[in-house]
């Protein structure tokens, strides 16, 4: 201990204190502060870049998932559309068929009705003509029968003979 104290040099202590404190202050200004600032900045920028990359990757994955989903939806929609189109076309064809049949039936019916009408009209006409003919014939017969007084008396006689009083 005594050796240590006798070894102690105040001059050396003074210079060491002076130089060391000066060195700390100088290095703080010209070295440590800029170095640590840069390192911190670099670290935060690396961290930022890494998180940005992770975020970008996530976004990319989301986008891809979205794309997949949209594609799937589109496919499904196409399928349903096709299906709908198919059914609707079938329906239309069916409907057209039905309508055509209906129309045809209607026309047929109308035709039949018309035929029936024509037929009835024709029969009526025929009846009338036959009646006319009959009257004409009857007229002619009567005319010829009742041409003379004798014939008229004969007829009346005959009719009277047919009539028997009871």
């Amino acid at each position: 201990m005594e050796k240590l104290i006798s070894e102690f040099s105040f001059g050396l202590f003074f210079w060491q204190l002076f130089i060391f404190v000066g060195l700390v202050l100088l290095l703080k200004k010209y070295a440590w502060k800029p170095i640590l600032d840069t390192v911190n900045e670099r670290e935060s920028s690396i961290k930022g870049a890494l998180s940005a990359a992770a975020a970008a990757r996530e976004e990319m994955e989301n986008l891809q998932a979205d794309n997949q989903r949209i594609l799937k939806e589109a496919r499904a929609e196409r399928d349903t559309l096709l299906k709908e189109a198919r059914t609707s076309s079938n329906q239309i064809v069916e409907q057209a068929k039905a309508e055509a049949k209906k129309e045809a039936d209607k026309i047929m019916q109308q035709t039949q009705e018309a035929i029936a009408n024509e037929k009835a009209a024709a029969l009526e006409d025929l009846k009338r003509q036959v009646a006319g003919f009959s009257l004409d014939i009857a007229e002619q017969v009567l005319k010829s029968e009742l041409e003379s007084e004798s014939k008229q008396k004969q007829l009346v006689e005959k009719l009277l003979s047919d009539v028997k009083l009871k």
């Binding site: 100088l26 290095l27 010209y30 440590w32 800029p34």
Partner: peptide, 14 residues
Amino acid sequence: IMFFLFRGLAKSYT
């Protein structure tokens, strides 16, 4: 040595 070494390092960053 320390001053020039570490100031050099600080400068090399910029």
